[in-house]
Design a protein around this nucleic acid. Structure first.
Lengths: 404, 404
DNA sequence: TGATTTTGTTCGGGCGAGAAACTAATGTCG
DNA sequence: CGACATTAGTTTCTCGCCCGAACAAAATCA
């Protein structure tokens, strides 16, 4: 039950019904892939005649295509329909502190080519470099006219309408307009988003395991953030900063956090926090004004040490698991999602921390229903950020039309 | 941008466009009250012919009516349209620990009659008593056929689809079906909701100050809860428990909370917490298994003492303000609403706590945008819960049609 | 080979947006 | 005072699209 905003609404035109039904057909085909016109008519409780006309439109515009003829026990055999994703391409870019990754993928999110280079901290130089590399990539794969756009994921706060990067502390950026600059450079539309929100989009639009529309995606890496998806739409908040769970307090006497407060969730569970716990030193502000090199020991190293029997490494990691659970309990109490996805390097050690996570949740979650909410680790090496960048470009083609 | 749930969608029929536009017209009239057909055509960028036909339908079904003739500098003078709210009635019920309030109001939320009686803790006896009192109320005002429904607000967790009260600790209820029982008793449809969510609904649908569609409503009374409204729809969560901000941790070494943990937000800011701080004793579990009488000193008394110059009372209240701000900061970081409403007895002392609240927010809010989010105290004596109950019945008549 | 079953298309009916013509009611200006 | 301009509201016709029914196509089965 939604209230209509009378200052910002979209009235129905004579083609609105068709737009709605066309999107429904497209999504039904997408979700149940080999599907005939008759199947669609049954699922939508609609006449087959209407389906014929809608499918014809979708075929004409090139979003779906007729495939093989299906089997049938009796009667005429159905012609199966498929969503055209193979030869529709997306350039996905993930700018991180250490390296910048870029990938060529299709609309289904399957990666075709992937490469990376050391991040250039000057935005203009980075844009030029990216432009050159993208043009080379497009040329070498001969996909000039079949590339639908560029998805750009940055570690920082993004003003979605103008496309400006308001603040990216890791890169030392403030009020940078990279979207329009890159768009001009490569001649393609560019969509920009911050990392946790992009990961949540990827999970919603490209996640093949569960097609949930009510979840939180928590990213644990240098910082800890979350993308909130409710009723199938990503929550951005009034100034694009919703989901900042990284700084909910766990203990005001806890370790110093980079944000200035003490005992934030992030100060207990970020990769740096875990490493600091192992090394037995204070959490040092990695990027406090001057950009420092990250410490030589990485979280992957720490997990490897724990696997080789380093008890101190194992207990540092397990402690992170506990605090992860405590913070997740807050998310469960406050958002009450149907599931939670966790991404980041720590998921490599999920088998080591899972019970600690559950115990942490149990200690703080309020209802019995929320205590058993599935917590699902993102599979390792799946490039969730790059998949998120892909989702940025692909999603608008499949989303429900805005109405009322 | 919303993803279509292919297991639960609504396709467009031949009348969908009209349903959408009819609701838009209704809401435009509701929000800009004296409005002519020509005004509607301009606001919707639509032909006046279509408006004529839509308005005729709305008049026929009795939701709007033609009023006086408006003024015009030149040309024919417009006939003004109004939403019919005066003779469409709602019974609003608010079940609380001490008393049960019930009110007769119209669709605009204006109260016509209000009464209360001591709460009966046996659900069946309470239902019978309510039934009798409602029938008397309806008969005495002679509104048998113009009463559209009953809104019921309870202090506890509600399973919205079945209408069952899963748990209401204050009343000692567990899995009680009051909705259907009351509906059978009075022969009217009954809508049920928990208190903070109902208050949020009231703010959205009946709030005349700001018509915001992106806010959090925080109720501070015996417990501390919140109703979250995003994009004009109330967030319920997977098991109807979203918005439980009362138990986000402030300090794990803080006072014992009724939920079992320590240092929850509620343990710092609930009325009992404020009183305990003043009385210098531990927060006693008011309703821990056996139902106890609330302490004789109320929060209103405390505020009165502070106003009369009791410095200890004033500092206890101001401390509550500080912690209120600290918890609000978490809400701002996590949800990033465009505004926050605060309801409860403590708002009577808003002038005494406002600066402490802002200071608390400032210490924990992350972005400069969220730090200046308006925090708006609900006006005192407005019966927000009863208004919420009214909204439960009225809102479905004005909400956007569900589509796609 | 004909009956049956299922898929997919075509066609007429009706709802509703879109656009333009038309009626109604007012004020203005020569 | 009457022609004219201006604005409000209605009517009418066209066209998009859902709806249902009839029809053609392609398969299986008796």
């Amino acid at each position: 039950m939604r209230k209509i905003d009378t200052r910002d609404f979209r009235r129905a035109t004579r083609t609105t019904s068709r737009e709605i039904n066309r999107r429904i057909v497209l999504n039904l085909v997408r979700d149940h892939q080999p599907l005939s016109r008759a199947d669609l008519a049954r699922r939508m409780e609609i006449g087959r005649g209407v389906v014929t006309s809608i499918v014809q439109q979708l075929i004409d515009e090139g979003t779906i295509y007729e495939g093989d003829i299906g089997a049938a026990a009796r009667g005429r055999r159905p012609t199966m329909l498929y969503v055209r994703t193979q030869d529709r391409y997306v350039i996905a870019i993930d700018v991180r502190f250490s390296r910048t990754y870029f990938m060529l993928s299709d609309f289904a999110g399957t990666q075709i080519a992937i490469d990376s280079f050391e991040t250039i901290f000057d935005p203009e130089a980075l844009t030029r470099e990216l432009g050159a590399r993208i043009r080379r990539l497009v040329a070498s794969h001969a996909i000039q006219d079949r590339c639908e756009g560029v998805g750009l994921v940055v570690p920082g706060m993004v003003e979605r309408t103008s496309g400006r990067i308001l603040l990216a502390p890791q890169l030392g950026w403030r009020d940078v307009d990279m979207r329009d600059a890159l768009s001009a450079e490569v001649g393609l539309p560019v969509s920009i988003e911050n990392a946790p929100m992009a990961c949540a989009q990827a999970q919603m639009w490209l996640g093949h395991r569960t097609n949930s529309t009510n979840f939180v995606y928590v990213t644990v890496s240098d910082g800890v953030g979350a993308g909130i998806v409710l009723n199938g739409s990503l929550i951005r908040g009034d100034s694009n900063s919703a989901g900042e769970f990284g700084h909910v307090p766990i203990d005001p006497d806890g370790p110093q956090c980079l944000c200035g407060s003490r005992g934030c969730w992030e100060a207990y569970t970020s990769n740096q926090a875990t490493l600091s716990r192992y090394l037995g030193r204070e959490l040092t502000p990695l990027w406090g004004g001057v950009v420092q090199q990250p410490s030589t020991l990485t979280i992957e190293d720490l997990i490897a040490r724990a696997r080789r029997g380093d008890a101190r490494a194992a207990s540092a990691i397990e402690a992170t698991g506990h605090y992860l659970g405590v913070g997740l309990a807050t998310i469960l109490n406050v958002i009450n999602p149907s599931q939670v996805f966790v991404g980041g390097e720590i998921t490599e050690a999920w088998d080591m921390i899972e019970s600690a996570v559950r115990e942490g949740i149990h200690s703080r979650a309020l209802t019995s229903a929320s205590r058993v909410t599935p917590i699902i680790p993102e599979q390792v090496g799946g490039y969730p950020r790059l998949r998120g960048a892909t989702a940025l470009v692909a999603a608008p083609h499949f989303a429900a039309p805005r109405v009322a």
